[in-house]
Design a binder for these strands. Structure first.
Lengths: 346, 346
DNA sequence: TTGTACGCGTTATCAT
DNA sequence: ATGATAACGCGTACAA
């Protein structure tokens, strides 16, 4: 079972080199010998030893997916599972494996980093939803290991895949404007993350374009979680907005709960729009109007681009790769016209 | 930067072996030499090459976490993220890495399996929530690779970690009996999975002990998902149970929706109890009474036991390791006394 | 305590 | 088309 090239070679009456060629589909090997070798491989149940092969080729076919601990959203929200599925799907179909690397409490980021990037075990890494301030990207840059981020990163040479956060936020706000809202609040994600920044920018740009009030008091920073959304909405309620744009569905759901908790109704008193379109968006009451982003596709594309960079096909190896996927407004039941001015709020 | 043992040795004026000893904390090396070598290591920025080391030691310090595709629950339910967090946490603190292996459409299980277990890249694997019929365990057994399952497996020699599913289900049903329910239905998980079987067994054993009706019509098989729970509950409604035990919180939430859809109330008309105690159990209305299981701990223990088997400390290497963690009933608001017989159901 | 020499299983270069 | 042989970077008996 644990046979080696050497044994197979002996059994087939050829040299190691020839067996190696057969395995790697090298063209120059006579048909007859190939058949003999393949038979020997079958008989001995030979499997190439991946580690030995890696040592010789300097390639492991293993990618790292690193997710900073700060993203507690991971454990309440289908966002990461979906992205992971896309990523593993792409890995599977291209013969790669994925090492999952969550930064947890028991180990410092720099130790983690040494274990990963500098261990020689990773052909490349996809950095998911990093913060600008966690220092991960500079370290990866320094190592010279191929990597890509999910969510844009401002440094010039960094590959990324992202969705059109600005455009998505704009669609959401324009939808609210069309319904007649003027006093609109927003719950942002952590502003150290570019998607949160971009969604806020989209919000602001539309408000400014329509010469609408843009008080900072109508902006509340959340953390992408339901609890964070709830807390942020509670603060926002003092400003009496007629509509709120939350930068994630989880936060939108939290916001709805805060609104209900204040004895107000969605959408009659306050309209809510989310971002993501996770499955639970349709299982809440009322079903959530939201901006859909192709999460699974994001993970898939990230590893595909990363692999193409690693394998250096064509100019992929030199040009910075940046892809921005479109978002889409999904209108459901959580938005309505604003209540009549001064009307009853029961 | 990419220095080798050889270069460090030269710089320190010793042999490769000595440097190797310093790195691996071998006791027999003179303090003076050790210092010199360590200095040389610093200067050269040397990092051991993990792949080369693996080839020499036949250990990669990489574990595989395999999750069969059938578990669609993965993408709607915090169960897997939590287990993954426990597993990675344990890996991190013991210097291991985790390869995530989802069986996806693009590749057959046997190809996946070859890539994994037989590639030589994995020191061991944790098989999460496999079905009895997916053939994974027999293959692992055959390979002789160390592994452990999450959720008990009937084969004698298989290590596993599990929770007390039978006891948890019993607590749930006894709680309902105490409230006065007699006509109790249950929504099971896929019966090819042992946790689903065990929860059903717990249900049945209590019903039998109390000489209560045990019609098969009061048992509906679900798939652990919300949609599945909803569909199962819709079927169950024809039997007019006054209470339902769902084998997962997701299914319980689906059941509540089906009940509402039939213009009935929870808990006034029908009581519902779930299993898991995921975060969303408290964010639904009414808050869910459920059986709590320590999901994160499960993942953590699984890799700890697996590692202890791999490293073969003491008798861990020969004795089958089986751990069953306790479950706990968490009473919230989704259960009440049954409606009065023949009373109004509005 | 330290060094020598060999092995781990492949790939790759260079002859033949 | 095939076969020696040298890397790949490290661990480890064994010898000194």
């Amino acid at each position: 079972m644990d046979s080696t090239l050497e044994e197979v070679a002996e059994r087939a009456g050829v040299s190691r080199s020839t067996v190696s060629r057969v395995i790697n589909a090298h063209p120059s090997v006579r048909e007859a010998t190939r058949a003999r070798v393949e038979a020997a491989i079958q008989e001995s149940g030979y499997r190439p030893h991946a580690v030995a092969r890696s040592l010789a080729t300097n390639r492991t076919h293993i990618l790292g997916m690193v997710i900073p601990e700060s993203v507690s959203r991971l454990f309440t929200d289908p966002y990461f599972p979906l992205m992971l599925r896309g990523a593993t799907e792409a890995c599977n179909s291209r013969g790669y494996q994925l090492i999952l690397s969550l930064f947890t409490a028991s180990v410092t980021p720099s130790v983690m980093h040494d274990r990963l990037a500098r261990s020689g075990y990773l052909d490349g890494v996809v950095a998911a939803n990093t913060s600008l301030d966690d220092g991960l990207i500079p370290r990866l840059l320094e190592d010279g290991i191929p990597f890509i981020t999910v969510g844009r990163h401002p440094v010039d040479s960094v590959d990324y895949v992202d969705v059109d956060n600005v455009g998505g936020a704009r669609m959401a706000i324009e939808h609210l404007l069309r319904l007649g809202h003027r006093r609109i609040g927003t719950i942002t994600g952590p502003l150290s993350m570019t998607p949160a920044q971009d969604r806020l920018d989209g919000f602001r740009s539309v408000m400014v374009a329509h010469r609408l009030p843009l008080s900072e008091r109508l902006v509340a920073e959340g953390d992408f979680t339901e609890a964070g959304g709830r807390a942020a909405m509670t603060r926002l309620l003092e400003e009496e907005p007629t509509a709120v744009f939350a930068a994630s569905d989880s936060m939108a759901i939290g916001a709805i709960k805060a609104i209900r908790n204040a004895n107000l109704r969605v959408p009659e008193d306050i309209s809510v729009v989310g971002f993501d379109d996770v499955p639970s968006a349709v299982s809440i009451e009322p079903e959530l109007t939201t901006v859909r982003q192709p999460i699974e596709r994001l993970g898939q594309l990230a590893v595909e681009i990363l692999i193409s960079r690693i394998e250096g096909k064509g100019h992929d190896a030199v040009t910075t790769q940046r892809i921005v996927l479109p978002t889409e407004l999904v209108v459901r039941k959580s938005c309505a016209e604003p209540p009549r001015r001064g009307g009853p709020r029961t």
